[in-house]
Computed example of a mutant assay.
Amino acid sequence: MNLKRIHHVAIICSDYERSKHFYVNVLGLEVIHEHYRKERNSYKLDLKVNEYDQIELFSFENPPKRLSYPEACGLRHLAFEVENIEEAIAHLHKHDIEVEPIRMDPITGKRFTFFADPDGLPIELYET
């Protein structure tokens, strides 16, 4: 097997319009394709992060809550690389999004922080 890279990350949201606004208008991801699946009464929104990476945003009627704790088994968080963490935090603050204090990665010496999407999914900003 020769895995080249991660193609996409799929996220199920509880409120499609609210999450679409967050990922498109707040985070600035570009819409590749939006498709309404009538048979499921659900949307699938493909979002472009950069020239390689994508996020798939799904809506389903009454999706069950996923209990998540910092050290629970499974996907821990979604991380985005940024050049200037202060600028990214200032942008989030303009949209009234709470951001944790900046931390330092003890191994790489790089700065990072966390905030949450509308459903509480932890998102990391990692400064390069």
Rank of each mutant, 00 (worst) to 15 (best):
N2T: 06
L3D: 14
K4A: 13
R5C: 13
I6Y: 05
H7Q: 06
H7E: 05
H8A: 00
H8F: 00
H8V: 04
V9E: 09
V9N: 10
V9L: 07
V9A: 05
I11A: 11
I11W: 11
C13W: 10
C13N: 13
S14D: 09
D15Q: 03
Y16D: 00
E17R: 15
R18C: 15
R18P: 06
K20A: 14
F22Y: 10
F22T: 04
Y23D: 13
N25Q: 04
L27V: 11
L27E: 10
L27I: 09
L27S: 15
L27R: 09
G28R: 07
G28S: 09
G28C: 09
L29M: 05
L29P: 03
E30L: 10
I32D: 12
I32W: 14
H33Q: 12
H33D: 04
E34T: 08
E34S: 08
H35N: 05
R37T: 11
K38H: 06
R40P: 11
N41F: 14
S42G: 13
S42M: 07
Y43C: 02
L45W: 13
D46T: 12
K48N: 15
V49G: 05
E51I: 11
D53R: 14
D53F: 07
Q54F: 11
I55V: 10
I55E: 15
I55G: 03
I55R: 15
F58M: 12
F60C: 08
F60M: 13
N62T: 15
N62S: 07
N62M: 06
P64T: 05
K65M: 11
S68F: 10
S68K: 10
Y69N: 09
Y69A: 12
P70H: 00
P70Q: 00
P70R: 06
A72R: 12
C73P: 09
C73G: 08
G74W: 07
L75D: 09
L75N: 04
R76I: 07
L78M: 03
F80C: 10
F80A: 03
E81M: 12
E81I: 08
E81Q: 11
V82K: 01
E86R: 09
E87N: 04
A88W: 01
I89D: 00
A90K: 04
A90T: 07
A90R: 04
A90N: 04
H91C: 03
L92F: 08
H93Y: 08
H93V: 05
K94W: 05
H95N: 13
D96W: 12
D96E: 06
V99T: 02
E100T: 10
P101E: 00
R103N: 08
R103C: 07
R103A: 06
M104F: 08
D105N: 14
P106V: 03
P106W: 03
I107C: 14
I107D: 03
G109I: 01
G109H: 00
R111G: 01
R111W: 01
F112G: 01
F112W: 14
F112Q: 02
T113M: 01
T113H: 00
F114K: 04
F115T: 04
F115Y: 04
A116F: 14
D119R: 02
L121A: 03
L121I: 06
P122A: 03
P122F: 02
L125N: 02
L125M: 03
E127G: 00
